[in-house]
């Protein structure tokens, strides 16, 4: 099943939640919608599910216009951030719900329903919780039940809205791996929304980065990390150093000082220089493109994070390997191993 949205627009009052979004999801893909809160990612997901309606644009599921159908007819599995399990039903009845409410003509008999629910509970490895109620489960268990419930109707596509957003860090990591392998097993076209870049990069085949109702970049996890398309993507994914620079006649300047950086093909004007924290190499004073004085040093496992006041006045944070200990007061030279400059 493919999903395609074209020129999708949605406003809430004066707030533009979606501002002309085009997106194609291939069959069997596990796609992540990544962005800060208010970027429109959840709105996009809800529109695909039929829980919200766009002001303009098209939604196609498997090539068919989905906007002529309500959420009920779309056969879409939806998993909510806060699980939305039916609190007065047992786990078993929660999972069975989608099967029990089917039209009489296609509804399965009780034995088939029981077998199917059992199978789904086995799939999420929680068959021993069948008789419990949602409030007796942990957050991670609830979300797995919610997923089993969504899968019960054999959805054409699976949509997950911040599925691990309400869970603690350790459970999140476990469930991420689990979701990946589950997707591998069932191979349903899936979109999941997250604001956690690590989650998106680790789980998805493809990542869509959104900001202010627009798509900033679509690409593989490697693409969006290694070659960010816009200043926003560079700043949002991974820890970046951001410096305001001026580009004029092929020369990059920080304040008044020219920097020995390549500026071919760059438009003149105010720009932003982005460097990953770990791409800033530390050398002796006098070497490299920048010079600065180390202010603080803290150790994080394999790296030391140093706050460096550049001679131009800006303060940046860099991650350096611990083979050469930095000390507050040291003067160091800094050379960006890799960098990107964006206009604006």
């Amino acid at each position: 099943m493919t999903i395609e949205v074209r020129k999708l627009v949605k406003t809430f009052g004066s707030f533009k939640a979606l501002d002309g979004v085009d997106l194609k999801v291939d069959s069997g893909e596990l796609l992540a919608l990544l962005g800060p809160s208010g970027s429109g990612k959840t709105t996009l997901l809800r529109i695909v599910a039929g829980l919200d309606w766009p002001d303009a644009g098209e939604v196609l599921i498997n090539g068919e216009d989905a906007l002529t159908h309500g959420a009920r007819e779309r056969h879409v599995g939806f998993v909510f951030q806060h699980y939305a399990l039916f609190r007065h039903m047992s786990v078993f009845e929660n999972v069975a719900f989608g099967l029990r409410v089917q039209p009489r003509a296609i509804r399965k008999d009780e034995t088939t329903i029981r077998a199917r629910v059992k199978e789904l509970l086995d799939l999420v490895q929680l068959d021993w919780l069948a008789d419990r109620y949602p409030n007796q489960l942990s957050g991670g268990q609830r979300q797995r039940i919610a997923l089993a419930r969504a899968l019960a109707i054999e959805p054409r596509i699976l949509l997950l809205d911040e599925p691990f957003g309400a869970l603690d860090a350790k459970v999140r990591k476990e469930l991420r791996k689990w979701l990946r392998s589950l997707h591998h097993e069932i191979n349903v076209t899936s979109i999941f929304v997250t604001h956690d870049q690590e989650e998106a990069l680790e789980v998805a085949n493809r990542v869509v980065v959104m900001d202010k109702g627009r798509i900033e970049q679509i690409g593989s996890p490697d693409d969006v990390y290694e070659t960010p398309a816009t200043a926003f993507v560079h700043g949002f994914i991974g820890e970046s150093i951001e410096l305001p620079v001026q580009v004029a006649d092929g020369v990059v300047r920080l304040g008044e000082r020219p920097l020995p950086l390549k500026a071919e093909g760059l438009a003149s004007g105010a720009s932003k220089l982005f460097v990953r924290r770990h791409d800033m190499l530390v050398g002796p004073a006098g070497s490299g493109a920048f010079e600065g004085a180390v202010q603080h040093v803290r150790n994080f496992g394999p790296v030391q994070r140093a706050e460096v006041a550049l001679s131009g006045g800006e303060t940046i944070e860099i991650d350096a390997p611990r083979d050469r200990e930095l000390r507050a007061g040291d003067t160091v030279g800094l050379e960006p191993r890799r960098y990107r400059i964006f206009a604006g």
Binding site: A49, G50, L51, G70, A71, R72, R74, H75, V76, G77, F78, F80, H82, A84, L85, F86, R87, F97, G98, V101, Q102, A146, R149, A150, A152, I153
Partner: peptide, 10 residues
């Protein structure tokens, strides 16, 4: 949300 879940389940 529970109503939305129910509707999306058909």
């Amino acid at each position: 949300q529970e109503e939305e879940a129910a509707i999306s389940l058909g």
